[in-house]
Design a protein around this nucleic acid. Structure first.
Length: 185
DNA sequence: CACACGATTGTCT
DNA sequence: GACAATCGTGTGT
């Protein structure tokens, strides 16, 4: 959930995430705490927002104990409320393109570094509400996207079916033998 | 202080 | 499939 400074309420249902932890070469917390990733080492249930590629913000939910450096990256969601505002912020019309991808999701919800460290349990600017649990078979795990290391850990989770999700186009690494692996979630 | 690069995206060929 | 956009951050000198 998100409440903009002007009072507008936006909401979306999370459908795709990726897990990161300290003993994980792909994680921002892998090389220890720094000013940038400090929130990741803090209390669970808070928002870790980072800036990347000179133009994008991505959202994480801190999930570990204090000092653990674990978080879950929010990769995609299904827009529920505030679609007109999301369309305006994204410059796109199709609902399935509004919150598809970690940077797009942050943009659609108007989330940037100012919300780094926000309390997602008690906060009033951005927070998470518990929804109906997914049936176990409706969530599929697979390799994480956009990383060069830690690719062996199948810590990307996506709700099967539905039209919502990130484009999930892994950066072209080695273009040999691409079509024989398991389907990406 | 210099420098390489990234938990990405959109556009073009 | 390839590539530009764009800059904070971490590391090394």
């Amino acid at each position: 959930m998100r409440r903009l400074p002007n009072g507008t309420r936006l909401s979306a249902r999370i459908v795709e995430t990726e897990a990161y932890e300290e003993d994980d070469p792909a994680s921002h917390s892998f090389r220890g705490e720094t000013p940038r990733n400090a929130v990741m080492f803090g209390q669970a249930g808070h928002l870790y927002v980072y800036f990347t590629y000179g133009m994008h913000f991505c959202m994480n939910v801190v999930t570990g104990r204090v000092g653990a450096g674990a978080a879950v990256l929010l990769r995609a969601a299904e827009p529920l409320e505030g679609l007109p505002q999301m369309r305006s912020m994204r410059g796109r019309e199709a609902p399935q393109e509004l919150c598809s991808g970690p940077a797009n999701l942050s943009r659609a919800l108007g989330v940037d570094r100012r919300l780094d460290g926000a309390d997602l349990v008690r906060g009033r600017e951005v927070w998470i509400e518990e929804g109906a649990p997914e049936a176990p078979g409706r969530v599929v795990a697979g390799p994480r996207v956009g990383i060069r290391v830690g690719v062996d850990r199948p810590w990307r989770f996506r709700v099967r079916g539905g039209a919502f999700g990130s484009p999930a186009r892994p950066r072209p690494r080695v273009s040999r033998s691409a079509s024989s692996g398991p389907p990406t979630p």
